[in-house]
Nucleic acid binder design. Structure first.
Length: 426
RNA sequence: GUGGCCGUAGCUCAACGGUAGAGUCCCGGAUUGUGAUUCCGGUUGUUGUGGGUUCGAGUCCCAUCGGCCACCCCA
């Protein structure tokens, strides 16, 4: 016997019940982006490996051990399945000179790939939608990006998301801080765990993220990044905060929030839920003014965020805000071959008039067809039986309320259908 | 990548080391064209997979695949 194949670990099928919720989310998101003036962009799932090495940073976990990278057998190119969306957007903006006539607001949505151990809210193929505001230097778009997220959560009916906010200053400010931080941590080396010691020289700011209580004890006495910020960085952060205050968006400043990708500067933020276990970050983002130059483009400021679709969908479902499955307006039944041909045309005419119509396929008794009609969730059963066929009529039976079944002349069925449907729903 | 818990019918779950079951779903019938309730009947499994121990393994052991949780990481 042929062994059954299964999907690749960490890469999931989305079955119809759940796929309808995905479609709902995608529609809401596309409309929401349009209302905020963001335009869609679609970039390849496969990019040159160098793009992510340069954008995300060599010393990050993503680049070090989580990327699906390979050397293509035909072209000998070093390729990678994208682990995130920002690098591709900025590459495309540079490659097509998108900023030649001014800044751009862009959004994307699609699958991303990271070779991590799967658990709830973390998969090897996962999906993100995100915004990139390219060419805007001020704190206004930082605040815009954050406020628009807040409004989306409201629209989706998701509550309980906490906004964590921080500024990590300019590269120069961060470099001076990093030097002092490393000096402090070296002085307390024996109190650090193995993980913190390893990071000390690869990515010392990430030590601030440690969940180990003993390490956090050490961090309590560490220098604070805020003390290294110059007037410009402080003014930028104050600008973001006052706009958030004006918009009524609450936040907590988390000085330990540094984010795992190297390209960020100034504003960084995360939207976090307590309802998702260990993978609680639903949305993360910030400013990345150095990324254009890092990828070989003319220097330009940028800011953006990415939202984890699987995590957001889990919150929408748990909040009971998944829309009910769409009902067909009518389910069409028939008895004979002649009846099928007639019913086929009737269903076609109704669909052309904009109604959702399912015609029974596969034969069976009228009783079994009625069971299918009921199970389909349809508002109405349209019966094209022997008797109806002989008289040129159609029987119309409401399935969702106790109302009498009526006979309608075939020729009038489509014209009267909207009225019949409305009665069935009332 | 590390550690812990767990894999039995499509789904939710039972079964002391001794004949694999229930509910649900699905199919048919209870009315000579009519669903959802009720009643009657029926199908459903290499117990994730492969080895081992045993007279005998769903149950114990090993490996492997998959899921969940934590670490780690991040959306």
């Amino acid at each position: 016997m042929t062994p059954a194949l299964q999907a690749v670990r960490g890469m999931n099928d989305v079955l119809p019940d759940e796929a309808e919720l995905w479609l709902h989310l995608e529609r809401v998101v596309a409309d929401w982006f349009a209302r905020w003036g963001y335009r869609p962009i679609r970039t390849p799932l496969v990019e040159p490996t160098a793009l992510f090495r340069r954008a995300i940073g060599e010393a990050t976990d993503i680049v070090e051990k989580e990327m699906y990278s390979w050397r293509d057998a035909l072209s000998d190119e070093a390729l990678t399945l994208r682990p995130e969306g920002t690098a591709s957007c900025v590459r495309a903006a540079i490659e097509h000179s998108l900023l030649h006539d001014g800044p751009k607001r862009l959004w994307y949505c699609g699958p991303m790939y990271r070779h991590e151990r799967p658990q709830k809210g973390r998969y090897r193929q996962f999906h993100q939608f995100g915004a990139e505001a390219l060419g805007y230097p001020g704190p206004d778009v930082d605040a815009e990006l954050i406020v628009m997220c807040d409004r989306l959560w409201q629209e989706l009916g998701v509550a309980g998301l906490r906004l964590e906010l921080n500024t990590i200053g300019s590269p120069e400010e961060r470099a001076r801080y990093r030097a002092d931080l490393v000096r402090y941590l070296e002085a307390n080396l024996e109190r650090l765990d193995a993980d913190a010691r390893r990071r000390l020289y690869t990515n010392p700011l990430r030590v601030l993220d440690s969940k180990n209580p003993r390490v956090r004890e050490v961090l309590a006495g560490a220098p604070v990044l805020a003390d290294y910020l110059g007037a410009d960085s402080r003014a930028h952060f104050d600008g973001v905060r006052s706009l958030l205050d004006a918009a009524g968006v609450a936040y907590v400043v988390n000085p330990r929030l540094v984010r795992g990708l190297d390209y960020y500067n100034l504003t960084v933020f995360e939207w976090v839920s307590d309802a998702l276990g260990a993978q609680g970050t639903v949305c993360g983002g910030g400013r990345y003014d150095g990324l254009f130059a890092q990828l070989g483009g003319r220097p330009a400021p940028g800011a953006g965020f990415a939202v984890g679709c699987e995590r957001l969908i889990a919150l929408v479902r748990d909040a009971g805000r998944a829309p009910p499955p769409p009902r067909p307006d009518a389910y069409v039944l028939q008895q004979s071959a002649d009846g099928f041909a007639q019913a086929f045309l009737l269903a076609d005419e109704l669909r052309a008039a904009g109604f959702r119509v399912v015609q029974h396929a596969g034969g069976g008794s009228l009783k079994s067809q009625m069971k299918k009609a009921d199970a389909s969730g349809a508002w109405l059963a349209l019966i094209v039986g022997e008797e109806e066929l002989a008289r040129g009529e159609v029987s119309v039976k409401p399935l969702r309320r106790n109302a009498p079944q009526v006979r309608v002349p075939r020729a009038e069925t489509v014209r009267r259908f909207a009225q019949l449907l409305q009665e069935a729903k009332s």
